[in-house]
């Protein structure tokens, strides 16, 4: 059941889109970013970085809403998010707001 009210000005709202940058060599594979991404954008990859950890990879690049939580929750300063200039992707509220 969707408890979210549909905003009346939905057509005017543009959801920010982010681009995630991963500095793989800094990653120590703690998994915080993967666990706490609200949009499940990231996942631990199979590949190894130079230190032998598994850095995350971007599974769903289009889902990122530029919330910067992965950047803030990275203890290694290995991930950051920039605003995607191309802001065409707008989804309906039900898709967008669902938890």
């Amino acid at each position: 059941m969707n408890l979210w009210r549909k905003p009346l000005d939905l057509q005017d709202i543009k959801v920010a889109r982010g681009e995630i940058h991963i500095i793989k060599d800094l990653c120590k594979g703690c998994g915080f970013c993967v666990e706490y991404c609200p949009k499940d954008v990231l996942e631990i990859s199979e590949e190894f970085n130079t230190k032998g950890y598994h850095p995350p990879y971007i599974k769903n690049p289009d889902e990122c809403v530029e919330c910067h939580l992965c950047e803030m929750l990275c203890p290694e300063f290995a991930i950051y998010v920039t605003l995607k200039e191309d802001n065409n992707v707008v989804k309906s509220a039900s898709e967008e707001g669902g938890q």
């Binding site: 703690c30 929750l73 300063f77």
Partner: peptide, 27 residues
């Protein structure tokens, strides 16, 4: 990294273990 203005990026990776929270406090 956007925090390079306030971090010594040439010193990073830092010495803390994987999963340690000190890096988060620094972030």
């Amino acid at each position: 990294h956007p925090m390079e203005d306030v971090l010594r990026m040439n010193r990073i990776p830092h010495i803390w273990c994987p999963g340690c929270g000190i890096g988060l406090a620094v972030t």
